[in-house]
Structure formats: structure tokens, C-alpha cells
Amino acid sequence: MKILVPVKRAIDYKVKVHVKSDNSGVELSNVKMSMNPFDEIAVEEATKLKEAGKATEIVAVSIGPDKAQETIRTAMAIGADRGILVKTDAPTDLGGVEPLAVAKALKAIVEKEQPDLVIMGKQSIDDDSNQTGQMLAALLGWGQATFASKVDLEDGKAVVTREIDGGLETISVSTPAIITTDLRLNEPRYASLPNIMKAKKKPLEEMNPEDVGVEFSPRVKILSVKEPAKREAGVMVESVDELIDKLKNEAKVI
């Protein structure tokens, strides 16, 4: 069984974001970039399935700038066997290529690669869209299991537990299908040095937007980007009594 794992190069989750002074976007120069954390979870899950003898090949795909090669190499160091980069020069500080265009590009790659399963992140931590997996499923006419915290593969189907607002829902989805990962699906491993070295030698194919036949121009215009409203500086209280007094008589919230 072949698994495709889309991985996105995004800002590292520990970085504090600064809005550019001209309100055109956010500052990304000299900022640490990493693999989108949910995608790391997706690569880990695919790797576990391969180690368990359930998957035979893992292909990591990214749509993004030249530098997204590093992201694909990271996926290879965890366990992907080869990689595909669809190169674009779309500005990355606002999340890069839009989800619908990414989904269309991924559809073209799925049609070429014919994977049995696509495992991807539920959400990019830059644009926070939470769309691409569901869109890809729609375009392929496949079933979807989003926000997965547990995946069991059976014959012709995946039984997936999903983290939803009211608790945990389990659904069964026919394969091929799209699965999107939630935080508690697994804990991604740290790639070992030998695996990082090995990753450098794995095949990485590059494509252009024309090769996937997708128009990457944005449909949603970003007019401006601002800092969120700042909270007024608060006060430190010395005791529980003072806290209760403030909440009752100053803030009047209890």
C-alpha cells in the first residue's frame, strides 16, 4: 500500500509573529521555519504503518518555494521514501498557495501516483485554514476522516476516531480516503543523524505548476494585516482575598 503525505513548510510554532509595519503581511526574514506540526504527525503515522508492514511506500509532497525541499528532506528523515516538490513563487508570509489550489495540485499528483491513502495535517499553523484535506477528498470523490486521533486500517476501509467538539467520534471510511491528523494521533519521533544523512540521498522530483495544470493565483485578496488589539496591562494581586475582592468589586464578574 502506498501512502501520500502532503507536507507544508511553515513558521516554527515557537516563533512569535510580528506584523510588517506597512500592514502588508508578517515578518518572515530570519525567522525559523519548520514542517507544519500536524504534517509531522502525518509523516509519523505513515511511517508507523510502514514499520507495521501495512504500507510499502511513503511519498511526501510539498507545494511551495525552493526551500520546501528542506521540509521534504525532514519527512524523508522520519520515514518518507521519496519526495515531490511543486515549485511556486507565491509569497509565503500569508500562508502560501491557497487551500483550493493546493488541493487541485495534490489531486493531479494523486492521479499520477495512485496512492491507497493520503494522510495530511488538519490545519496549517500559518493560515489556520483547516481546508485542504476536505477539499482534496471532495475533488477526488473520496471519503474523508478529519481530526484523527486513532487510525486502524482494515480490508478496504479505515476505522478512524475523530476529535470533535462533543467528544470522540468513530467513523469507518472506505479506502482510498483522506485522513487528517489531530494532535493526539501520535508523537512524532526525532530524526536520527544517520536517517538525516540517508534522507539526503532519497529521490526528490521537482515539478512546475504547469506540470500539475493548476492556476495558483489567489481567489481571496488580502487587503491588510494588523496586530490584534492589545490587552491593557493588568495588575498583580498579593493574596486570594485581594483577588476575590477585585473580581467582585472591580471587575464585577463573580
Binding site: E98, L100, A103, S129, Q134, L136, A138, Q144, T146, R219
Partner: peptide
């Protein structure tokens, strides 16, 4: 919510629309 996030992008893609989230 997780309900809306799950269904809406699927609708958007079927209608060839770039959804605006949240």
C-alpha cells in the same frame, strides 16, 4: 466548530470556491 470545519471545505471545493475560514 468541528462540524462546520469538516463539511464546509468539501462544499467549497465541489463548487470551486476558495472558502474563507473563521
Amino acid at each position: 466548530s468541528t462540524f462546520g470545519r469538516n463539511i464546509m471545505p468539501r462544499i467549497a471545493a465541489l463548487l470551486d470556491v476558495q472558502q474563507v475560514s473563521d
